[in-house]
């Protein structure tokens, strides 16, 4: 239940993060202004950051605890085990979650804290805002970074594909007429988020945005 709730909280963040980032397509000034607006509200920003962090900690911590418990529930595995129904996404939640965690860590160090690529930390755009735009464009011109981010998006997509419908089931939402809609929620939201993010990455890499 807690995993489902925290997971859904993180999903909401991921959706807004993607929507915000899409402002890249409106040009450097718009994106930088958006970034500045966020930074101008330090209390809110840190509240959200702490909220996200604690959600992530709970989400991951409980998931680890549960998977250990689940492992204990079947000490000896089957020699042959064939799945009938379980989707690839549902079977790889641990792997995709792990990949996602590594990716988020890299992403934070890379673009938020600027540790990996410190060259752009202090650049300012003509309006005096921090030049997030150039930093992003610079980052995604590097093919290695692009590949890393695409893999990260794959992990995110897989994770979301199962996560959303699963959370809905865990919270007990179930309705004969709405079941198909609820089941579709995961893949659709996951796909939108991934497509949005991938659009940004590829747009820069292919030189559509520069």
């Amino acid at each position: 239940m807690v995993i489902a709730l925290t997971g859904l909280g993180l999903v909401v963040f991921v959706v807004f993060h993607m929507l915000g980032n899409l402002q890249l397509f409106e040009g450097p000034l718009a994106l930088n202004r958006y970034a500045a607006v966020l930074r101008d509200m330090p209390i809110l920003l840190w509240a959200v950051r702490i909220g996200l962090l604690s959600m992530a900690v709970f989400h991951i911590g409980l998931a680890l605890q549960l998977s250990m418990q689940n492992r204990r529930a079947r000490p000896l595995e089957y020699t042959i085990h064939r799945y009938r129904k379980a989707s690839i996404a549902s079977r790889t939640m641990a792997i995709s979650g792990m990949a996602l965690l590594l990716f988020v860590a890299f992403h934070l160090l890379h673009l938020t804290a600027g540790v990996i690529d410190p060259g752009f930390a202090d650049r300012r755009d003509p309006e005096g805002n921090r030049d997030v735009y150039t930093k992003v464009v610079h980052a995604f011109q590097n093919p290695f970074v692009v590949i890393l981010y695409l893999v990260g998006q794959l992990g995110l997509g897989l994770h979301l594909r199962h996560a959303i419908a699963s959370s809905v089931q865990t919270m007990g939402f179930e309705h004969a007429g709405l079941n198909r809609l609820l089941k579709a929620l995961g893949p659709v939201i996951g796909l939108i988020v991934v497509l949005g993010n991938v659009a940004i990455i590829l747009a820069v890499f292919l030189g559509i945005v520069h």
Partner: peptide, 29 residues
Amino acid sequence: GFGSCGNQYECEAVCPKGISARFIANLNR
């Protein structure tokens, strides 16, 4: 010492009486 539900619905797929995993949502509710 049973494990927890991962909402994969393998249970529903092998149930000889075709009991729907919808009832698990109902249980959660």
